[in-house]
């Protein structure tokens, strides 16, 4: 399979992590070894085996649709990296051309 530094760069982009060249070089062989060692799971179960997503059977949980107090706004914003006018302040989300 051999995961290349280009593959890792593409995955890091999907995962929204900026990685340096040095990090890519360091990570690629490590990730390759991990993927190689887990690849054997493909041979274990036949097509007739149902996948399990959760250990125990899940049922949908409902509650009454009633108004309840939410967390105080100032408590929530206190942990934000930046806040302004009682809102989260975020960097621009559109490109220059938009």
């Amino acid at each position: 399979m051999a995961l290349t530094t280009d593959d890792v760069a593409r995955l890091a982009k999907l995962a929204r992590i900026e990685l340096s060249e040095a990090e890519l070089e360091h990570l690629a062989p490590q990730l390759d070894v991990i993927l190689e060692s887990v690849a054997s799971v493909q041979q274990v179960a036949g097509p007739d085996i149902e996948p399990t997503s959760h250990a125990l059977p899940l049922t949908n949980v409902f509650r009454e649709d009633e108004v309840r107090p939410s967390l105080p706004r100032e408590d929530v914003l206190a942990g934000a990296p930046a806040a302004e006018e009682e809102r989260f302040r975020v960097p621009r989300i559109l490109g220059e051309e938009a």
């Binding site: 999907l14 274990v44 996948p51």
Partner: peptide, 26 residues
């Protein structure tokens, strides 16, 4: 995060994540 992104990415989902969930059944 990168391994997980790989296992969930299109084209690999069935081979990796799907197979692993079947092992979970076993």
């Amino acid at each position: 995060i990168i391994i997980g992104t790989y296992a969930l990415s299109s084209g690999y989902y069935d081979a990796y994540y799907g197979s692993a969930q079947k092992v979970r059944t076993l």
